[in-house]
């Protein structure tokens, strides 16, 4: 499979009044054409900041992208998303990369009709006149499963249910045939059945349009059903990257192992308490000088405290930032 996006050593910090927040400490990953990459990790691990850095969507100040590159394979050759001019950046946003935000109620403008919110993106990127853009909007709304799309074109976001609003959000994201769609926890605000419908819809659209999807979630349970590969984030780093089956069978980072152990299993004995990872994530105001998981890690040893581990390749397409070989039960 061919690459569509390669992110290398992304470093993003926030310069706040209380000090520097080291939100991303060198995040690297790639995305192939047509695949789904899931990004998991606990709250505050930097999942959203990673994605928003790529599209320059962070408030600057306080945010600053300090290092790294994000090479996107555009139609006429590779471009570095982090070094684009303003007009180029606008062409990529919405046109090449669509973004689905977590809470559709706050992510849609409350005083603009949903139709116009989809249409304005179309008019920005595709050379269509108002009428044609309106037609396309209605088709899109139908396509994402909004019943009576034509009559609902002029409705406002608050007149939709949560699931329907998220469908509108999806229509916005795919309106201009992007190559990549970033879905930032699109289902956390929804109940389980609606959540399943939205996942189903996203998969269908991905197959039809052949787009690549980055699916952010903190629910490892969802990941198995949707992703080809998984990136596990912890304290501003990508600590493990793996094909999805390998990750479940063979986690190679103690943090991932902890996350998996915390999953409720089918057939688990009743009354048995779920394991959860002890301790809390590091204070991001300190730059990382050693493994950021060390004080929570059951395997930690002296080297873990001396330096931050680099990324080790531990199998085909499988990488981990850990000094300990969990298969051999000894340091690497």
């Amino acid at each position: 499979m061919s690459r569509i996006l390669t992110v290398k050593n992304l470093v993003t910090r926030f310069y706040t009044f209380d000090g520097v927040v080291h939100a991303l400490n060198g995040v690297s990953f790639h995305l192939d054409h047509g695949e789904t990459l899931a990004i998991v990790g606990e709250s505050g691990s930097g999942k959203s900041v990673t994605m928003m850095s790529l599209l320059h969507l962070l408030p600057m100040p306080p945010a600053r992208i300090e290092e790294g590159e994000a090479v996107f394979e555009d139609d006429d050759g590779p471009i570095d998303l982090l070094k684009l001019s303003k007009p180029e950046r606008r062409r990529v946003r919405g046109g090449k990369i669509g973004y689905i935000f977590q809470d559709a109620l706050s992510a849609l403008n409350p005083v603009m009709t949903v139709g116009r919110q989809v249409r304005e993106s179309i008019m920005e990127h595709l050379s269509l006149d108002q009428k044609a853009a309106r037609e396309r909007t209605i088709q899109l709304l139908e396509h994402v499963g909004i019943p009576g799309a034509k009559s609902r074109y002029g409705n406002y976001p608050h007149q939709f249910s949560g699931g329907m609003r998220q469908r509108v959000m999806i229509a916005v994201a795919i309106a201009c045939d992007p190559k990549i769609v970033i879905a930032d926890e699109p289902t956390t605000a929804l109940d389980v059945t609606v959540q399943a419908q939205i996942i189903e819809l996203t998969k269908r659209i991905q197959d039809e349009l052949g787009i690549s999807v980055i699916w952010i979630t903190h629910d490892l349970g969802v990941v198995a059903g949707i992703a080809d590969r998984v990136l596990v984030m912890y304290a501003g780093s990508a600590v493990e990257i793996s094909p999805v089956d390998r990750l479940y069978e063979h986690p190679q980072h103690p943090y991932t192992e902890g996350l998996l152990a915390a999953l409720p299993r089918v057939g688990a004995k009743r009354g048995k308490r779920l394991a959860s990872i002890k301790g809390s994530p590091p204070d991001l105001q300190e730059p990382p000088r050693h493994c950021q998981f060390a004080w929570r890690c059951p395997y930690n040893f002296d080297r873990c405290w001396a330096s931050a581990p680099p990324l080790f390749e531990v199998g085909e397409g499988h990488y981990t930032k850990c000094y300990y070989d969990m298969d051999q039960e000894r340091p690497r």
């Binding site: 990529v92 849609l108 993106s121 990127h125």
Partner: peptide
């Protein structure tokens, strides 16, 4: 929603 507007280009 302003961030969404930016994300549309």
């Amino acid at each position: 929603y302003v961030r969404t507007a930016y994300s549309k280009g």
